[in-house]
């Protein structure tokens, strides 16, 4: 069974990031389907968290619940990071391909995903004095996530720590530029479509309608 052994190997990666990501990168021990499932799961758990987080710490207005929006907000930064990191590291002599970066970020997400889910479940059985426990649980997951991501990128791109930090800063800048271009594209496309629609309706109403 391929996927079961891949899941097992994923857990090995979580506890031995340097060895694990090396094997994933150079001996094809990663699984793209598994990575995709993890990213999807992360989005679904964000929706779950919005709705089912315990009342005591749930400040999300129930009437604004929009699962598609929440899912997008959770998954979009991941995709953005993959694209901007790949576009930077190709310039900075990074050896990772876009699919390698995808596996690294997906596998790194696992602790965050698990701890976030534990937080959502536990938040239903805590009182206000115990909220700090939940916060520390979430913090453990987040720190673990960042650590794995950092290690994974180092190994995948064959970077030193310093170059990795520089490329990460550059990744952030690239992400901002990508968002800017995307917005520009959508606004311009909107104008073009609007123009075409106006021309069409003008022709249709005056030319044919008389």
């Amino acid at each position: 069974m391929g996927i079961i052994s891949d899941v097992r190997y994923m857990f090995y990666v979580l506890f031995h990031p340097f060895d694990g990501f090396f094997e994933v990168r150079f001996r094809n021990k990663g699984n793209y389907a598994l990575s995709a499932i993890i990213v999807l799961l992360y989005g679904i758990i964000s929706i779950f968290d919005y709705q089912y987080r315990g009342f005591i710490i749930n400040y999300s207005p129930p009437f604004y619940m929009n699962s598609i929006f929440i899912f997008t907000v959770a998954v979009f930064p991941i995709l953005l990071f993959i694209i901007s990191n790949w576009s930077i590291t190709t310039l900075f002599n990074g050896n990772g391909k876009i699919k390698d970066i995808f596996i690294v970020i997906a596998y790194s997400l696992v602790p965050k995903l698990v701890f976030d889910f534990i937080r959502t479940l536990l938040s239903n059985v805590i009182i206000l004095d115990e909220v700090f426990i939940l916060n520390s649980i979430v913090n453990i997951g987040t720190i673990w996530f960042f650590f794995l991501l950092f290690c994974g990128l180092c190994v995948t791109h064959e970077y030193t720590v310093f170059t990795n930090i520089v490329t990460l800063i550059a990744t952030f800048v690239a992400a901002v530029i990508i968002i800017f271009l995307v917005m520009l594209y959508f606004i311009l496309m909107g104008k073009i479509v609007g123009f075409a629609a106006a021309v069409f309706s003008e022709v249709f109403q005056r030319g044919i309608g008389g």
């Binding site: 009342f55 005591i56 710490i57 059985v125 009182i127 206000l128 004095d129």
Partner: peptide, 18 residues
């Protein structure tokens, strides 16, 4: 307390209920 959106009092009640 849930209807009144009072989380601190809800927490107090829940403490005993739990």
């Amino acid at each position: 307390f849930k209807l009144g959106n009072s989380r601190s009092y809800y927490s107090q009640a829940y403490k005993y209920y739990r």
